Simulated scan of single mutants.
Amino acid sequence: MLTRLRAGGKGVAAVVLAAAALLTPGVTTSAQAADSAPCTPDPDYPGTYRCPIWGSNVNLRSAPDQQAPVIATSPDGGWLRVLCQVKGGRADYGGYWHTWWVKTPAVGMAPSAYMSEIFLVGGGDDERDSGLPNC
Rank of each mutant, 00 (worst) to 15 (best):
L120H: 14
E127R: 08
E127W: 00
G8K: 08
L23Q: 13
A13F: 07
G8W: 05
T29I: 15
T28Q: 09
D65K: 02
R61P: 08
G78C: 08
G9P: 00
W100A: 03
S62D: 15
N134R: 12
A113T: 02
A37N: 07
T73Q: 12
T48A: 01
A37R: 04
A33Q: 12
V102F: 07
R6E: 12
L5Q: 10
K87T: 12
V107Q: 11
S36A: 13
R81I: 07
Y96F: 10
P25N: 02
W100M: 04
T40E: 13
L132Q: 03
T24I: 06
M109Q: 09
L83Q: 04
V70M: 06
G26L: 10
P75I: 04
Y96G: 05
P105L: 09
L83M: 07
H98M: 07
G9L: 10
P25H: 11
P41H: 00
L80C: 03
L5C: 03
T24C: 08
R90T: 11
A110V: 09
Y49W: 15
A18I: 13
V86G: 00
K103R: 15
R6H: 11
D42V: 01
I71M: 03
T40H: 11
T73Y: 05
V121F: 04
C39G: 14
C51A: 06
V12E: 14
R128F: 07
D125I: 03
T28H: 14
D125L: 07
T24H: 10
A13H: 10
Q32K: 15
